[in-house]
Design a protein around this nucleic acid. Structure first.
Lengths: 216, 216
DNA sequence: TGGAACCTGTGATGAAATTCACAATCGCTT
DNA sequence: AAGCGATTGTGAATTTCATCACAGGTTCCA
């Protein structure tokens, strides 16, 4: 449904998803100068069950002190480590339309050590245009450019019709994981991990929930 | 983690998520002039398990003919009906930054009968600015404007610091479900359904999967 | 030093989602 | 009209995920 799993063994995907939430939360705590936090506090402030939090962490080792809790800075560092965002992670964005542009300008990415190293489009009108700190490059040069920047993450923001082709190109260029915004299911080799983001899907689920109360 | 469930009884959330995928797929099939499809074909073309597809549909009734399969047009219509997107669904967007603008300009929304009826921001420099077919309105007027347009879906695209406040306002204005792009966990009443979209979370999961072969 | 108040990490339990597997049905062909 | 291959819908089995509940640590304070 979402990821071509494979990869590491026993860690549930939902756990990984929550790790990112924890990280974000810990960064906020740091900003608020909180030094230590217990799983109970996490539950109070995020709504995530305390046992869940502890179990999620337990997949990766021991992080807390009984009777005390977790050191905010240390936990933050260790989660970043687990997620491999403890150092700058280069990313390529393919498709510089509205969405691609929004991503390029999104400050949260840098905060979390993601770095958009290159952006591509196939529209001659866009190629060469400056966009944030970048210049839009020709989609045809993905492979060549990536030999330089070594991005292993690609974000695909092109229309559905072009997405498969673009994904193939990215994979040839050495990309290992793909965040796909196009509303199609990409066919990729086993070893490649894909995650799909679909606004439409999210909206559809929400729309469904409008049901209940209309006739109540 | 994602939705404040409540609402209707026995339908699994993952099933709802897939329904939107099926709908998309069926629209593509229609374009390709396919009239009938079997669950096996669905599995071949989307990677979603055939039994899964059948079970998902079974929550809502019977849709197919044994020995034959499903009528593409009919199934399409019925799924749209289930998701309540068989007629135009008004939506409000709060926050007209890069992301909000991208959504306003996203053609896929209209295709699926979602209609952005109003967009708001609190930045005086943005208020009054035309954006696509809309003019950005003052965030302070959310309630008043929604008395007119009657949106029950809100999309929140403001920075984390403003998101909770904006959500409260939207709820007061009659919104029932929220698509939240801000990286915080919103506190909302039981009856309100929230879904969170986080690029960072998605990227983090992908980044994690880069593990194995980096030393190749 | 001892005990009360807190906490973590985790095995056991429970709930939810996915997949299996098969009886029932359909349409085609002979 | 009867048999066959294809396909659905669904109870049951399986797998995955979430929660419970508690044995051990840790701190603080008297």
């Amino acid at each position: 449904m979402n990821s071509n799993s494979s990869s590491s063994p026993k860690v549930p995907i939902p756990t990984l998803e929550r790790l990112a939430t924890y990280l974000r939360f810990l960064i906020d705590l740091e900003a608020a100068q909180v030094e230590t936090i217990s799983s109970t506090d996490v539950e109070k402030q995020t709504g995530i069950n305390a046992a869940q939090f502890r179990k999620d962490l337990s997949y990766f080792g021991e992080f807390g002190k009984p009777g005390v809790g977790y050191n905010v800075l240390e936990l933050q560092a260790r989660i970043a480590r687990i997620l491999k965002i403890d150092q700058l992670q280069p990313i390529m964005v393919i498709g510089a339309g509205n969405l691609g542009s929004a991503l390029i300008g999104y400050p949260g990415l840098t905060e979390h050590k993601f770095h958009i190293a290159a952006a591509f489009d196939r529209d001659p009108a866009k190629i060469g245009r400056p966009q944030g700190d970048l210049v839009i490059l020709n989609e045809a040069d993905v492979r060549e450019v990536n030999a330089e920047i070594g991005a292993r993450i690609a974000i695909i923001c092109v229309p559905a019709a072009a997405a498969q082709e673009v994904a193939d190109t990215a994979i040839l260029a050495g990309v290992r994981v793909i965040l796909n915004f196009a509303p199609i299911i990409l066919k990729v080799p086993e070893r490649i991990v894909v995650r799909n983001v679909s606004f439409l899907q999210e909206l559809a689920v929400l729309s469904y929930h409008l049901s209940g109360e209309s006739q109540k």
